[in-house]
Simulated assay, not measured.
Amino acid sequence: MQEKRWAQVWMTIGLLWFLLAIAVAPTNKIYQQGLVALLWVPAILFSWSSRARLRELFYEQRWVYLPMLGLLVWSLISLAWTNAPDAGREAKRLLYIVVFLLFFPVFANGRPDRVIRIMQWGGIGLAVTALVAIVKFYGVNGNVWSARLEGLGELSHPILGGYVIGLAAVWLAFWPPNTGRVQVVWGIALCLLCVFVLLSQSRGAVLALLLTILAMPVWCRDRRSRIIATVALGVAVLALMFFESLVVARGVSYRPQILVASLQMIAEHPWTGLGLGGDYKVFASDLYFDHAHNLFTHVAIELGLPGLLLWCAVWLAVLSRAWKSRDTHYGKGIIGVWLFSTLAMQFDAASLSGTPRAEWFITWLPVGLASLLVWARANSDACDKISRST
Results as ranks from 00 to 15, higher is better:
Tyr96Phe: 12
Gly125Val: 07
Phe104Ile: 08
Leu155Glu: 15
Ile301Tyr: 05
Ala173Tyr: 00
Trp219Gln: 10
Asn143Cys: 03
Val41Asn: 11
Leu274Trp: 10
Met68Ser: 11
Leu167Pro: 00
Ala370Glu: 01
Leu193Phe: 14
Gly139Thr: 14
Val299Ala: 11
Trp364Tyr: 09
Leu160Val: 02
Leu155Ala: 13
Ala300Trp: 00
Leu149Asn: 03
Trp145Ala: 15
Arg326His: 01
Leu160Asn: 08
Gly275Cys: 12
Leu45Trp: 10
Met241Asp: 06
Ala168Lys: 08
Pro306Tyr: 12
Gly180Asn: 02
Glu3Gly: 01
Leu316Trp: 02
Val260Met: 09
Ser285His: 12
Asn294Asp: 11
Val367Tyr: 04
Leu57Val: 11
Val237Arg: 00
Phe283Pro: 00
Leu309Phe: 13
Leu305Ala: 11
Pro217Thr: 15
Leu259Lys: 09
Glu56Val: 11
Ser387His: 14
Leu35Thr: 05
Ile301Ala: 05
Asn143Val: 06
Leu35Ile: 13
Ser50Ala: 13
Phe107Pro: 04
Leu131Lys: 05
Ser50Phe: 01
Leu71His: 10
Ala208His: 07
Leu373Pro: 10
Lys332Ser: 01
Tyr163Trp: 04
Leu101Arg: 03
Pro85Ile: 03
Gln33Tyr: 10
Asn143Arg: 14
Gly187Gln: 12
Leu172Asn: 00
